[in-house]
Write a protein that binds this DNA or RNA. Structure first.
Lengths: 210, 210
DNA sequence: TCCACAGTTGACCGAGCGGTCAACATAGTT
DNA sequence: AACTATGTTGACCGCTCGGTCAACTGTGGA
């Protein structure tokens, strides 16, 4: 703690530093494999201080998750105003790829809580799923999307295409190089989803590019 | 150990029992949160015996993962003979859904090793991805799939649609009930992927439900 | 029958864990 | 200056962990 810039009595900056350190360690190593002592070391405080501020390791974990969820909630509602407009797949996919791509730690933490059976804490879900589903239904009502496919299952597939990519893109990038990047994937995804795999008769010229 | 049916000196059945118990506990609670003692309790042996047979907790984990991978490898090669035939999306998706659906513990273990950064141990991958990609290319060569979409990205999307569903179907089933089941999802997925979302001109009469 | 050897176990070790506590440091109030 | 409330810490507790080890048990061959 020599040369520590933080004021000695500044509980708010302590809490922030602890939450930052905890998010990183929980996301990288998981709950069981992260000790309060390692978090305290990273945050530059003693480990009893964490217990003083957060009560227990479990409660600290809850606080970390809550902050992640709030971070999402603070961002997605802006998109939620579009709820009554027909979905624009390209824009929506890009929004997910961009935002989640900027928050890899949060994504990883969510994957961990998810695998541990805590389905409640999956930021943006159910909100995100609901939003997409509703906007698909609007698009169906306006004749922009065929009506014989269920909006719920379509939404799940779209999320699957997005999150599977986000979960694995590092892996794919390492294996396939530049062929595997966000934009190329996004373009192919939009084309496949909107137009399907069947051969195009009238070539592909009338596209929606934006 | 009273009433234990296993012969007292039967190292093979001990190893099997330990691997079974370890797979279940590692998959359910993760590596760090599973103790050798809990595995030994479940397997009905003492915990030093596990170390005697497997060397260390890490090596036991490796053995568990290896057995899972070998289980996949023993099953998918049968499908690999189709490598030179154009892909049949419905059959391929059904194969994945069925097999992985029957091996939820393995799926969960793979998700854990995956999130921990161990990309090597992802059964069926890269084999499964390669297989799908090649068969898409065959289909493209035969004019069954449009050629302007990259086979690699299509493969990733298809895997994403399958695995995201498998990872979350319990969650969705709890939320949406019978509307979220394997067959309905499979049907919608095949239609969306093959035909796209754009409205069908030649009406929609041949609908799913099965 | 006895022997060599692999299988198996209870007791034990050092380390690290989450959590507690008494003591100390600081800031604000009087 | 003294008091109070809160922030902060080092020392400590009981526990569980992965791993070791000497000792015991059953098996199969000489």
């Amino acid at each position: 703690m020599v040369g520590n810039k933080r004021q000695i009595h500044d509980p708010q900056s302590v809490k922030t530093a602890v939450l930052d350190a905890a998010l990183e360690l929980f996301a990288q190593h998981g709950f069981a494999d992260t000790s309060l002592r390692s978090i305290s070391r990273k945050a530059g405080v003693s480990h009893p201080l964490i217990l003083h501020h957060f009560g227990s390791k479990e409660q600290l974990y809850d606080s970390v998750k809550r902050r992640v969820v709030e971070g999402y909630a603070a961002r997605f509602p802006a998109a939620a105003r579009d709820v009554n407009r027909p979905i624009n797949l390209r824009v929506e996919l890009k929004r997910i790829l961009t935002y989640v791509g900027e928050n890899e730690l949060a994504l990883k933490l969510c994957a961990r809580t998810h695998i541990d059976g805590d389905h409640q804490v999956w930021p943006g879900e159910p909100d995100l799923l609901n939003l997409i589903q509703k906007r698909i239904e609007v698009a169906q009502a306006e004749g922009l999307i065929r009506k014989d496919l269920r909006s719920l299952q379509l939404s799940i597939m779209i999320l699957g295409i997005a999150f599977f990519w986000l979960d694995n893109r590092r892996h794919f990038a390492a294996r396939f190089g530049k062929a595997a990047n966000d934009n190329a994937y996004l373009n192919t995804a939009v084309k496949m989803i909107e137009e399907g795999l069947l051969p195009r008769f009238s070539a592909s010229k009338s596209q929606d590019e934006e």
